Simulated scan of single mutants.
Amino acid sequence: MGNFESWKDLLNPEFYIQMGGFWLILFIIFAETGLFVGFFLPGDSLLFVSGIYAVEIINESIGSTGSDFLDTTILATAVAVAAIIGNEVGYWFGLKAGPALYKKEDTFLFKKKYLFQAHDFFEQHGALAVIMARFLPVVRTFTPIVAGIVKMDKGRFLIDNIIGAFLWSFSLIFAGHYLDKIFLDEFGIDLKTHLEIIILIIVLVTTVPLVLKFFFGKKNTKDYSQH
């Protein structure tokens, strides 16, 4: 078990795996969308690194099946379910209290600009935004809230929510698990010893689109304060 040493640990996916394993991972994934304050949590990198440790995580929590594939599938499925529940809570929150968020003042845990960005993203991509947002940090936190605010059809939202959650969870967790095995078997490289570099790469890949949109989309930012 790990120990909390600094605030940097909160951005380190390995910290959560060592501290709470399976159940903490599920809570983090739920919180990232179910609790809008979870936008700073390491979703993508947490799933990838969890894939690398999939067998250990399942063995220490509910007991290994003896199959790498089944252990990884169990982990990915559980994460997908947590992500689905998180999005449904976010949708409900947007439906009930979302409009008031546009009038809420910024705080340390809440930035109104993220809500605007998610709204623009939703308007641009429509129903597909719920699926696509899964792969974009920050945006995935606020998109379900926006879906609730604009009163997206509940059935359509649920379908897109399920598709997006399973695509996100299975692609990243299985990528982490099997890339680790490939690198170890073919090149003798243990990805567990290079996690900092891997996390940095994932962060860069997933945040570049947001950075580009921030700089090139400023002029298109709308005022939703009257909504």
Rank of each mutant, 00 (worst) to 15 (best):
residue 183 F to P: 01
residue 128 L to H: 06
residue 200 L to F: 03
residue 125 H to K: 03
residue 179 L to T: 05
residue 151 K to T: 11
residue 185 D to V: 13
residue 185 D to T: 12
residue 123 E to W: 10
residue 161 N to L: 05
residue 177 H to V: 10
residue 116 F to K: 07
residue 96 K to Q: 12
residue 214 F to Q: 05
residue 214 F to A: 10
residue 124 Q to R: 12
residue 173 I to R: 04
residue 118 A to D: 02
residue 150 V to Q: 04
residue 112 K to D: 02
residue 95 L to E: 08
residue 95 L to W: 10
residue 148 G to A: 05
residue 202 I to H: 11
residue 140 R to V: 02
residue 103 K to Y: 01
residue 106 D to M: 00
residue 208 V to P: 06
residue 141 T to Y: 06
residue 129 A to P: 09
residue 217 G to C: 09
residue 145 I to L: 10
residue 186 E to A: 12
residue 149 I to K: 03
residue 108 F to Q: 10
residue 156 R to W: 06
residue 122 F to T: 08
residue 102 Y to G: 05
residue 166 F to A: 15
residue 150 V to E: 04
residue 98 G to T: 12
residue 136 L to I: 10
residue 201 I to G: 04
residue 117 Q to N: 15
residue 195 L to N: 04
residue 182 I to F: 13
residue 168 W to T: 13
residue 100 A to G: 02
residue 157 F to W: 02
residue 214 F to S: 11
residue 159 I to H: 01
residue 147 A to M: 03
residue 108 F to M: 09
residue 163 I to F: 08
residue 162 I to A: 14
residue 119 H to C: 08
residue 177 H to W: 12
residue 210 L to S: 00
residue 194 H to S: 10
residue 128 L to Y: 05
residue 149 I to A: 06
residue 215 F to G: 07
residue 119 H to Q: 15
residue 188 G to T: 11
residue 149 I to E: 03
residue 108 F to N: 07
residue 152 M to S: 10
residue 100 A to Y: 00
residue 159 I to K: 14
residue 174 F to G: 05
residue 116 F to W: 07
residue 213 K to Y: 13
residue 117 Q to I: 12
residue 135 F to T: 06
residue 184 L to R: 08
residue 205 V to N: 09
residue 128 L to E: 03
residue 132 M to Q: 11
residue 167 L to S: 13
residue 200 L to I: 00
residue 159 I to C: 04
residue 187 F to K: 02
residue 212 L to R: 13
residue 168 W to N: 13
residue 188 G to Y: 14
residue 110 F to L: 08
residue 116 F to V: 14
residue 162 I to Q: 06
residue 154 K to V: 04
residue 190 D to P: 00
residue 165 A to Q: 08
residue 104 K to A: 07
residue 217 G to I: 11
residue 168 W to Y: 15
residue 174 F to D: 06
residue 181 K to M: 01
residue 176 G to I: 04
residue 205 V to L: 15
residue 215 F to Q: 03
residue 155 G to A: 06
residue 172 L to E: 11
residue 180 D to H: 13
residue 173 I to L: 14
residue 169 S to L: 12
residue 131 I to H: 02
residue 138 V to G: 07
residue 102 Y to S: 00
residue 94 G to W: 02
residue 116 F to Q: 11
residue 205 V to S: 09
residue 196 E to H: 05
residue 174 F to H: 13
residue 129 A to H: 03
residue 94 G to D: 06
residue 160 D to H: 15
residue 210 L to C: 00
residue 140 R to H: 04
residue 137 P to D: 05
residue 108 F to T: 15
residue 216 F to S: 10
residue 104 K to R: 08
residue 119 H to E: 14
residue 203 V to K: 09
residue 214 F to H: 14
residue 210 L to P: 07
residue 161 N to S: 13
residue 208 V to D: 04
residue 137 P to N: 04
residue 166 F to V: 15
residue 127 A to E: 14
residue 124 Q to G: 05
residue 178 Y to F: 12
residue 217 G to R: 03
residue 132 M to L: 15
residue 112 K to P: 02
residue 95 L to I: 07
residue 126 G to Y: 04
residue 193 T to A: 15
residue 189 I to N: 02
residue 148 G to E: 06
residue 160 D to G: 13
residue 111 K to F: 01
residue 142 F to L: 01
residue 174 F to E: 08
residue 116 F to M: 05
residue 118 A to H: 00
residue 134 R to M: 01
residue 203 V to Q: 11
residue 137 P to Y: 03
residue 188 G to I: 09
residue 136 L to P: 09
residue 191 L to H: 00
residue 174 F to M: 13
residue 135 F to A: 06
residue 199 I to E: 01
